[in-house]
């Protein structure tokens, strides 16, 4: 029995030693965190002051987006990560050349919830937009009429601090069905 316990002790010491060297931290940290249900990395809530900043970022972004569509200049869009912004710039240029009637207006924005995962903040909103379309009404002898359509979108923004500035790095948008 004594020999067995000796073997057990040596095996445990070697194993936890490996974990300490491999992980660079105490192997018990994970166990303690697990017992306390404190996530080492996981979904958390942002602080109130940061929440307000994020709201401002999104509102400013949408306002600048409206202006960019109005003027046909994608460089006016604010608060986007560089690569992601280029996509929007290209899209607004395309819209100016092909669908000049496409001029969205933001009527209302409601912030649903916020969370943080690692260094990425996730903000969910409900946005009411009015968007101009061309209605090709063939029954009217092919007359093209500009109409305004009201649509509601549920948007999930991913925001991250890059070079000390908040930047939108992506979003997913889903139109609310009528």
């Amino acid at each position: 029995m004594k020999n067995f316990l000796k073997i057990l002790g040596i095996a445990l010491a070697v194993f936890f030693g490996i974990i300490y060297v491999e992980e660079g931290m105490s192997p018990f940290a994970h166990l303690v965190a697990f017992l306390k249900k404190t996530p080492i990395e996981g979904i958390q809530q942002p602080l109130p002051e940061i929440a307000n900043e994020l709201k401002d970022i999104i509102v400013n972004h949408n306002n600048s987006l409206v202006e960019a569509y109005e003027r046909g200049d994608g460089n006016l869009v604010q608060n986007m990560e560089k690569g992601f912004k280029q996509f929007t710039v290209n899209e607004i240029f395309f819209a100016r050349m092909n669908t000049p009637e496409f001029k969205p207006r933001l009527n209302n924005i409601k912030f649903l919830n916020m969370s943080v995962s690692g260094d990425v903040f996730i903000v969910r909103t409900k946005e009411d937009w009015s968007i101009g379309f061309i209605n090709k009404n063939s029954s009217n002898g092919g007359i093209r009429a500009e109409v305004i359509k009201d649509e509601t979108y549920h948007v999930t923004y991913q925001i991250k601090k890059i070079e000390n500035k908040w930047r939108i790095i992506g979003f997913e948008s889903k139109r609310q069905s009528v």
Binding site: E91, F94, A95, F102, W129, K136, E151, V155, S173, R175
Partner: peptide
Amino acid sequence: VIRNKFTIVERPLKPNEWMDIEG
């Protein structure tokens, strides 16, 4: 069909049927 965050067209489509997307 989505452009930026906006839905341009949303509809059912049968095979070999044509759908218009802003021209």
